[in-house]
Each structure stands twice: as C-alpha cells, then as structure tokens.
Design a protein around this nucleic acid. Structure first.
Length: 879
RNA sequence: GGAAGAUUAGCUCAGUUGGUUCAGAGCACUUGCCUUACAAGCAAGGGGUCACUGGUUCGAACCCAGUAUCUUCCACCA
C-alpha cells in the first residue's frame, strides 16, 4: 500500500477514533481475565479541557492502553463531577448577566436553570478527551449528580449519621461572603497579606459608662469589629496590666462597657499584650468567649457587610468600614498609631474572597477513626504513592485532621436528608417518606407539611469520595450490608489513580476512607501524582497571563499523538512540568520519523531468492538482541511508573537504533532488491516497535498497523500483545558497541580530512575485534577491506577500547598535527595510569575494597598499559 | 512559625540504596552535508569544580553536619 509522503494527523485521528468506537474497542465487561481498572478523576461537568487535563489523561490512557496490550481486561471509567460551588457560581453569574438574581428564584427554579446549564455545557470536556485519543469505556460514563449516584451520597450521609459520626453544630466556620456558603478548612488558602495594625485606646470606665482618663491600648488588624468586642483580655502573668483587674473599659465610638479578663492564650510580647476579644468574628476569640462566658455579638452579615448590631457604619462592606472607622477613631482621639503589617489572611479557594470566620450551624463528619484507618493503608504500603514523598504530606494531614464540615449553603448538589420537626428535633432518613415515618414515631400527629428539610447541600467531595465504588455499584455506599454487584466485585479495587497532588486531601485521602468504610479495602493500589503544568519559565498557567495554550488548537496543529508525546517528554513523576511548544514539535517530528521509516521499508522490492548480505545478517541479529534488552528496560520503567523514561527508551530505540543504524545497515543498494529474510526481519521489528509505541501514540501506530494489510487482517493494534523480551547476548551487544565506536571514529576522520563518504578507505586492526562484525564496519564506514595489523606508512590511528586501528592516508596526514594529538592522548593515559596505580598501591584500599573493585582497577591498569603501548607505537610510526 | 523536597551541561531532568575506563539523556548549540525514507532530516562535534563549607571513608554527585538559594505543603499570634 502506497503511503502519502506526509503524515496527516487530523484525518487519521478522526478515522481511527470512529473505528474504535464503532468496534467498541474501549468497552469492558467482567470476564475471567485479570482486570485493570482506572477511574477518571472526574473533571467539572461544565469545565473545558486545559493542559493539566491533557497531562493527566494522557498518562491514564498510556497506562490503560499498556494494560490492554498486556492482555488484561482494561476498563477506564469516565465521568464528570457536579462541582457544587464552581458550577453554582457560574450559573449565578450567567443569571446575573440576564438580569436575574438568585434571591428572586425559588430553589426549584434555580435548579432548572442549573440543569439547563449542565445540559448545555456538560460533557463538552468528555468530547474533548476523545480528541486526545482517550480510550475510556464511554458506555460507563457517570455523573456525580445523576440519580443513582446521588442516592448513594444520601445513603452515605444516613449511614454515618446513624453511626453517630455526623453531627450538626454551631461552630466557627470559614464563610465565603461571595459564594455565600461555608467552606471546609481545606478550601481556605492562607496568603500573607499587607494590612495595617491599628493601635487603639480603650478608656477605663468610671462605672457609669463614662470614660476616666486612664486607658489601655490594644492592637488589631480589624478595627471594624470593635463594636462586637465582648472583653479585653490580658495574660494573668503580665504585671503591666494588673492594675486593670476587675475594671471595665469602653469600646471607642459606641462607648459600650466591656470587662477586662485574663487568659493564658494572650501572648505578653505580641502587640501591646492586650487582646480585644470578638467571639463572633474570630475562632480563637470564640474559644476564649466560651471559657469566660462572654456574649456573642455578630455584627457582620452573610455578604460581609456590617449589620444593625454594629450601630455604626451599618450596611458598609467590611473593608470600606475598616477604612472609615480608622478615620473616625483618629477624629475621636482613640487612634494611637497605625503600623504597616503583613499577616496571613484566609482566602476562598473558589472565589478568592477573604474568608470571614463566622458562627453558624453546620453539619460535620467525625474524622478521627476514618483518618486513622486511611493512614494505615498508606503507612502499611497497601497503597503506594508515587513519588513516595507525598506519604509525609499525607501522614501529617491525617494526624492533624479536624472534623469535616460537609454542609454548603448552596442549591446545586445533594440536599442534606435531614428533616426538622416543628419542635426543632431532627430526623435523618434517605427519603421524605421514611423521614415522615420516623417523625411519626416521635409524634404520631405529624404530617408531611410539618417537616422541613434542611436547606443545605453536601460538599462536592462528599460525593466524589465514593467515585471508585459508586461508578460500579451505586447501591453499596451507605448500605454496607448490600452485596457488591458483579462489576464492583470484579473491578474493585481499581489499580492506579493518576491525579494532581493538590487534591491529595480533598479527594485521594477521602476515597481511601470511603473505600475502607464500605469495601473494607483500598480503592486503588498506586497513586501517581503528576506535577502542575507550568509555562516554560515556570509560571502557573492561567487565563489572565494568557500563557495557557488551548489543547485543541495544539491537537489540530500538530496532531494528538504529538501533543501526547510532547506532554510526556517533560513529565517526570511529581515534578512540576515546564511545558513548551517545542516539545510538541518534537512529538510531531517523531511521528514524521515513524511515518518515513515505514515508507522506506514498504518501498523496498523484495527478492525472496536473494542471498542475505553479511552486514544485514549481523544487523538483524544485533537489533533482535537489542530489542529484547530495551523491552526489558521499558517494562522495568513502567513497573516503577517512570513513564517518561520508558518513553525515552522506546524513542531512542526507534530513532537511533532502528532508523539510524539498523535500516542504514540493511538498506539495499539503489535499484537493488532486498533479500527476503532481511525484509521479514525489518517488518517484524517495525511491528514490534509500533506496538511498543502504541500506548503513547495510538493514532499513527494504528494507521500504520492497518496499512500493513494483509498481514493484520483488519485487526486493531489496540489488542495486540506487548512484545516480550527474549534472552539476549550481552557480550554480542557489547561487541557491536565496539564496532559502532569504530565506525563513528572513521566517520569523524572523514569529516576532519574532508574525505567524501563515498570514497573507499582501508582499515588495519591491531587487537581483538570480533570477526563477525567486520562486515558491519565495512558497510557502515564504507571500507574496501579490513586487515589485521598496523597500517604501514603515514596513517591516522585511533583506539577503540584497547584495540588500535589505523587508516593509511598518504598525503593527507599532517604529521605534526597527528603527533600532537597522539601525545595529548598519551599524556592523558599516563596520568590516568598514575591515578590507578596510586589507588592500587594504597594498602588500605587493597585491604578494604571488595575483590571485584580491585580486580577492576587491575584491569584498568592493564588496559591502560595496552593503550599506552599502542599510542607509543603509533608515534614511532609517524617519526 | 513548622514540615517536606530540591540545587548535576544553556534548558528540562536521569543517576536504583558509596566502587564497571576522568559524570548520562533529551532538547538547544557548533560544523559539514539538499546522500534516491525523512532538512520536521543525516553525519560529526563542543559543553558540567555534581550549590557552598566541613566531616565520615581506601574511595562521595550519592552518607553526615552546617550555610545559601528555590519550591511546595501545613499553620487563625490579635
């Protein structure tokens, strides 16, 4: 079959992806083969493909395709995540554009809009993954908010509630005033932020609410919260403040009287040693408040604005209020000074809004027991992290974990299955009907109308932690007594998880917890953490910087295979990835190389009767041995998740060894036919090579495989078996390396002396060179003959190991130049010899070093002597 | 503030538990080639005091201590 001169990726990719889909090549059903399972880290349902996805899914696809070719029953389950906060905020933003406020909608109306948005944008990213070549089992596509999976989430909530591990409590939580919801501790990002340290005078009260002329000074970064102060606190050991004992002070501007209290929490040497206690707006202050029975006065509303309770600046945003109150305090004479100050401030991961500590009723899941068990799975090695260093991170988090705030004040998500009775009691059941039944046990007169369901939804991660289970059997989570169905029994535990280290706590840790709780088993055996994709100067990719290429543009420009290869080339596990388009170009170039190699082989005329030239015979033997050795290396790399090392080994095998050496050695002379045996070997090697390449570059390899008809009878390469390494002759491979070295030296001499490659030369060999390899050297170096011994007359000589080689070259040799070169080399060898001898004459070395090391030093010594002798002989000849 | 990790060629990284002939790869670079598969290519080549300072050892890129720089994670001193 005639191939076009250029590889056309887009046409080929479309053709074969459609073919794979049509033939259901990606689909898996349980059978008696060993399963190999991956669940996709579900992207946000309304997300679009970015470079991080490309990296992650390329790695996933390489692993799954490799496993498939290893004969395993490979199943890669795709799907999307409803991404509660992210999606809801997008929907809110779109409604706003249409002039609709969320507050004007009922829950049902809002959800209609949200589902419409999901229908419109949902699944785009899955379509994009197909362009990348992802071999997901699309028949198994799941969505975390589809009915069955939502049921699983609800059941899970009930399960833990009945176990006593879920509780509702009024706690200080992280409030996001933009998203209008509480978020978990993990969703808060602390950033050092420039602010001001206000030093304020609080006057001591005369007992009737009037200021005396005595005062104390506190330091705060949040002067707008002084109206919520409940006390001033000092350290009991701080003698500077003992005069304040039992006194009351007045809050500036509003003149409210508050007590001075003492608590060890206050650091004497920080600030002024006086702390204003504001229980409603600071987590630590809240704790102090509890200890001292202080009232809680909340002066900030959900949007982060001061409310009526503040008395002043009502309705002002907290940051505006901060500036304004600074002025007011200055005017009232309460402001002592303002210092520049840098302090850590919490920001919302989603909205980047400054988090407001806020007291509110939320649902929590106890973590202690779950975390201990999840930690053990990793500590014991049942789950391996690649790279290993993430174990430390994981352990630290697990040992310091706090209860998980699982409620979110949002509508897009699974609604908490808790119903409140009119008297405030709560029942938790999977459905409204069951809840009513449960409520009637408390009060038989109740009707459905009397029950009010909790308004909140659950944290997205409370659904995605079930993912490796619920994609197979949504009935199991929450119902541990349920018998796992056929899919779950077969595919669980999954094998490998490829994901970013940024979600190690959000997702990885919690999947391990859920797996342990419901399956009493790990959810996966290996977690491969990818790095973050950055641009080539190390910046994170972001829309605002505009340094993030659109993967689909890259695919249409270079082809999916090129993008995949480019991504993998720069990705060693756990390191951040500095992406550069030149790597994708390298991928494209590799495609061209593969394409052209087959164009060459397939263009040959074959004469089955022709005798196989010696050089070709040896080349075949060599490549056969080499192939086995490289396959062994590649398998080893895969086993250690060193995907880019595996890739590089294959890349070099194909480009350097197969193309540059093997094909050049067996290539028939112009106009002549290739013999049958050599041709068969060249084709067979090519087949094995594209099988090795297929997991990384699925499209071009399928195209060429199919182009090799009728050899393959229309079978896909996807289900061919990975080539296996046979035994190989390491000595022979080493001998070939010597030949290769000789050839390179001869070519270099040609280049130096400007002798055309076509001009025949003669070679004299003084030393033990394998007879078998002389035809190879002859062909590759274009020699007319190779003779034992040393060249007579003027010659250029060089060393290959300890073998002296020389090429007679009358008239072309500059004797002085050659002499200088030889002398330099001789000098170097003598120094080397001196070093080796120094070692060998060191008694301690001889006494302590192992036999093998000493023997090796002796070999170095004798080889070096041989070389010195050869060099001296060459010098003599020149003189 | 705590912790983990990193520092090897211009760039990105290997270096498998201290010892194969003065440290390897890919890319980039230099030189020569439009040689009938491929100029997106071929051939040849240059390039490193393994961050720094000490120590352990017969022997250190590798182990130990300290220093410097960087990255990430965790952390509510108001």
């Amino acid at each position: 079959m005639e191939l076009s001169t250029k590889y056309n990726p887009s046409e080929v990719e479309e053709k074969w992806y459609a073919y794979w889909l049509k033939n259901r090549c990606f689909h898996s059903e349980p059978d008696n083969r060993e399963p190999y399972t991956i669940v996709i880290p579900p992207p946000n349902v309304t997300g679009i493909l970015h470079m991080g996805h490309v990296l992650n899914n390329t790695l996933n696809d390489v692993l799954i395709r490799k496993a498939r070719m290893d004969g395993k029953n490979a199943c890669w389950v795709p799907g999307t995540d409803h991404a509660s906060i992210a999606t809801e905020s997008k929907v809110v933003a779109r409604l706003k554009e249409q002039g609709i406020s969320k507050d004007d909608l009922t829950r049902e109306q809002f959800l209609e809009h949200a589902w419409a948005w999901k229908e419109e944008h949902g699944g785009i990213i899955l379509e994009q993954l197909r362009k990348l070549g992802a071999s997901c089992d699309w028949d198994r596509t799941r969505f975390t908010m589809e009915p069955e999976l939502s049921d699983a989430v609800i059941a899970t909530f009930c399960h833990f509630y009945k176990k006593g591990w879920i509780y509702r409590g009024v706690r200080m939580v992280n409030w996001d005033p933009v998203a209008l919801t509480a978020i978990s501790d993990d969703e808060v990002i602390h950033k050092d932020t420039k602010s001001h340290f206000y030093h304020l005078k609080y006057y001591v009260s005369d007992g009737n609410g009037h200021p005396t002329d005595q005062y104390l000074v506190i330091a705060t970064t949040r002067p707008e919260t002084i109206m919520a102060d409940a006390a001033i606190c000092v350290n009991p050991a701080d003698e500077r403040h003992h005069w304040l004992r039992g006194k009351k002070v007045l809050i500036p501007l509003i003149n409210r009287e508050i007590p001075v209290i003492e608590d060890d929490y206050v650091e004497m040497d920080f600030g002024t040693g006086c702390l204003k206690v504001t229980p409603a707006h600071d987590a630590h202050d809240y704790e102090i408040g509890l200890r001292h029975n202080l009232p809680v006065l909340d002066i900030i509303d959900d949007h982060g604005c001061l409310n009526e309770q503040a008395q002043i600046l009502v309705g002002e945003d907290r940051f505006v209020a901060r500036k304004k109150i600074g002025k007011m305090l200055e005017e009232s004479g309460n402001l002592v000074k303002v210092e520049e100050y840098i302090s850590p401030v919490g920001y919302s991961e989603r909205t980047d809004a400054v988090i407001e500590p806020k007291l509110s009723a939320q649902w929590f899941l106890k973590m202690e027991d779950l975390a201990a068990r999840a930690l053990d799975h990793v500590e014991s090695g049942r789950i391996k992290f690649i790279p290993d260093k993430y174990r430390n991170t994981y352990r630290h988090w697990m040992e310091n974990v706090r209860d998980w705030c699982i409620s979110r004040q949002l509508w897009w998500g699974q609604r908490i299955p808790a119903w409140y009775l009119p008297d405030g009691q709560v029942v938790v059941e999977e459905t409204a009907e069951l809840a009513l039944a449960a409520a009637r046990k408390i009060d038989p007169s109740l009707t459905a109308a009397d029950l009010k369901q909790d308004e909140d939804v659950l944290d997205t991660w409370f659904s995605s932690w079930l993912w490796p289970i619920s994609v197979f059997d949504p009935k199991l989570p929450g119902h541990p007594e349920h018998k796992p169905n056929r899919d779950l029994s077969y595919y669980y535990p999954t094998n490998d998880l490829v994901t970013g280290p940024d979600i190690i706590f959000f997702w990885v840790a919690r999947m391990i917890m859920a797996g342990d709780e419901f399956m009493h088993d790990v959810p996966f055996h290996n977690v491969y953490f990818t790095g973050i994709v950055r641009d080539k100067i190390g910046r994170k990719m972001s829309k605002t910087l505009g340094n993030s290429p659109n993967p689909l543009d890259l695919i249409s420009k270079y082809g999916a295979d090129a993008v995949r290869l480019g991504m993998l080339l720069c990705s060693s596990a756990g390191n951040d990835i500095l992406y550069d388009e030149s790597q994708v170009e390298q991928g494209r170039n590799f495609c061209a190389k593969i394409w052209n190699a087959w164009r060459l082989v397939s263009s040959w005329n074959v004469d089955p009767e022709a005798e196989q030239p010696d050089a070709a015979r040896v080349a075949v033997k060599w490549f056969d041995n080499l192939l086995s050795r490289v396959i062994e290396t590649v398998e080893d790399h895969y086993g250690k998740f060193r995907i880019n090392d595996a890739l590089m080994a294959i890349y070099k095998l194909f480009w350097d060894d197969y193309c540059s050496w093997f094909l050049e050695l067996v290539k028939p002379e112009f106009g002549k036919a290739v013999d049958g045996r050599t041709y068969e070997a060249a084709v067979l090697f090519f087949e094995k090579l594209i099988k090795l390449i297929h997991p990384v570059m699925p499209f071009i390899t399928e195209e060429l495989w199919q182009a090799m008809e009728p050899r393959h009878d229309g079978e896909t390469i996807m289900y061919q078996r990975t080539p296996v390494a046979g035994p190989y002759d390491a000595d022979f491979l080493a001998q070939f390396e010597q030949a290769r070295e000789a050839i390179i030296s001869i070519r270099a001499i040609r280049a130096q002396k400007q002798i055309a490659p076509k001009e025949l030369l003669n070679l004299y060999v003084d030393g033990e060179l394998s007879e078998e390899l002389t035809p190879v050297i002859k062909k590759a170096a274009n020699l007319s003959y190779i003779q034992p011994g040393a060249a007579e007359g003027t010659a250029v000589s060089f060393l290959v190991g300890t073998i002296k080689m020389s090429i007679p070259m009358a008239g072309l040799v500059n004797t002085d130049e050659e002499k200088a070169k030889l002398e330099a080399e001789l000098d170097h060898q003598r120094k080397f010899l001196a070093g080796v001898r120094a070692k060998l004459s060191n008694e301690k070395f001889v006494a302590h070093a192992p036999e093998a090391v000493i023997a090796n030093e002796r070999k170095k010594e004798s080889d070096c002597l041989t070389r010195i002798e050869a060099l001296e002989a060459s010098l003599n000849t020149l003189q």
